[in-house]
């Protein structure tokens, strides 16, 4: 405890150097807070009763843990299947002669197919323009993805002073925005910056320009919002994203230094 107490005091003075001049009062204050810690006695009857209740509860189906052997055999099996799939194609390529000239009618059909193919390519290109490469597809009902489901996620570190917030990683399950807000008495306040609309994807290094510069020693909030469909961020109508595990709004607090912390 004394070690923790001294660490607390030093941490306070590191970030609030002026308090060092009031060392006696600060130590008394922190000491008083420590001493005021409520003595909480957990009712043992409650503890044991809850324990019995929990351990007799039917739990959900367990996650399957693959055996070590499966971890080695599965890739080998996959390779074998792949080889078996490729062999017929390889054999047919080497033994069957393809026609060198096609009948006129067939040429026309091929031309039409090629045109269709080009049209398809154009559509795909337009899709690529709208949804950047790597964007995960929105799931239609009943569709499955080969990718494991990843909920919305946000990774951000402390920032340096400036007019840009750099978010390390953003994962959105629907089109939306990354929003930076001022810390107003411990809760998100004024919106200082909003990312361009992002699509349902994982993006690294999202830069968010701010209307006012980050200040050293201040804390800020960054959060995710799903777009309500109009492509424009409006805090009153867009949907705040919630953490799938805790149910709390997905929000992160970060600090600002004049140089990157060690």
């Amino acid at each position: 405890m004394p070690d923790t107490f001294e660490h607390m005091i030093e941490d306070i003075y590191t970030l609030e150097p002026t308090l060092r001049e009031q060392d006696a009062e600060v130590r008394a204050l922190v000491s008083s807070l420590v001493s005021a810690k409520p003595v909480v006695a957990v009712d043992d009857t409650f503890v044991q009763s809850l324990r019995r209740e929990l351990l007799t509860k039917v739990v959900p189906a367990p996650k399957a843990i693959p055996s070590p052997w499966m971890m080695y055999l599965a890739p080998l099996g996959a390779m074998a299947v792949l080889i078996l799939m490729l062999i017929p194609g390889y054999l047919s390529h080497n033994t069957v002669e393809l026609p060198t000239a096609a009948p006129e009618i067939m040429n026309t059909e091929l031309q039409m197919d090629a045109d269709d193919g080009a049209a398809d390519m154009n559509m795909k290109q337009r899709s690529a323009d709208v949804a950047p490469e790597g964007a995960s597809m929105m799931m239609a009902p009943g569709e499955e993805s080969d990718e494991a489901f990843v909920g919305d996620m946000l990774i951000v570190s402390d920032q340096v002073e400036g007019r840009v917030v750099e978010v390390a990683t953003v994962t959105l399950t629907a089109p939306g925005f990354v929003v930076v807000q001022a810390d107003t008495e411990g809760v998100p306040g004024a919106v200082l910056g909003v990312s361009p609309m992002l699509f349902a994807e994982t993006v690294d290094l999202v830069e968010i320009p701010l209307t006012s510069a980050l200040k050293r020693g201040q804390t800020y909030f960054v959060s995710l919002y799903h777009d309500d469909g109009d492509g424009v961020f409006v805090i009153e109508t867009d949907f705040p994203v919630f953490d799938v595990y805790s149910g709390a709004q997905l929000m992160f607090m970060f600090g600002v230094y004049d140089a990157m912390p060690q």
Partner: peptide, 23 residues
Amino acid sequence: VGGTEDSVKMAFSRGIRDLREKC
């Protein structure tokens, strides 16, 4: 609480500072 370690330190220090001012 959802934040960086240093933002939590800042909030703690500022809270003590505010408490000290109010005391």
